[in-house]
Write a protein that binds this DNA or RNA. Structure first.
Lengths: 110, 110
DNA sequence: ATCGTTCATCGGCGATAGACGATGAACGGG
DNA sequence: CCCGTTCATCGTCTATCGCCGATGAACGAT
């Protein structure tokens, strides 16, 4: 499943590299990692709860949450005036697997 | 070894989140992922070889390599007029482990 | 000594990230 | 009905990213 990446991709970052990079970009911010950790502790989590924990403005936290949702790492469900955010464990596991695969290919390739 | 992260870090991203984020940031660019893949195929790799593969300017590739070196993912060794770059497999494995640990903590914490 | 090659660094430029305050919508409670 | 709470979005600002061309240093070869 990994032998189709050097046909049209020799120039500048194949689709695979691009996809992995995009998901890692969502993870590569301390606040977002902290948000994920906090989401993991409580099953239900609204925006304000995160705001209260990290000392960032509400608008900033909302943006970080949006980035995580758009990356597919966090699921969003409106609940009355609240906004419920929850970790997408499958997606997160998938990211972990992607990184592991990248590292593995770097070791096996040598 | 992981119970010391919520003492002074409740505000904005503990040292751990910061460190993980920094290393992931180095990985979160298609060109750099592609560089890592290329480094894995040949044991010795100079800057020009990478330039020749990705179609980016030499200065751009040099900057990406510098970022990878500063992140500790790639080792640098000057060799005459060349510059030898090689993957630091241990560091890369460590990043993979960090991501796995983060994902794991997000699942176990729930 | 001169030329070609390889490379890091500098300066500049456009685009994006990250943070904030302000605003308005949606909703519940008084 | 009015107020407080929660939240997403907008506009703005600054800092950084990513890219490039140009430059000069280091080195090998002629």
């Amino acid at each position: 499943m990994a032998e189709s990446l050097m046909e049209t991709n020799a120039s500048c970052g194949g689709p695979d590299s691009r996809a992995v990079a995009a998901r890692l970009a969502a993870l590569s911010h301390p606040a977002r990692i902290e948000i994920l950790k906090h989401l993991s502790t409580s099953s239900s989590c609204c925006c304000r709860e995160v705001v209260d924990r990290l000392d960032l403005a509400q608008s900033t936290v909302s943006q970080h949450l949006k980035i995580l949702v758009e990356a597919g790492l966090v699921r969003f469900e409106p609940d009355r005036q609240r906004s419920r955010y929850a970790i997408d464990h499958a997606a997160l596991a998938d990211v972990s697997a992607s990184v592991a695969a990248l590292v593995n290919s770097c070791c096996s390739g040598r």
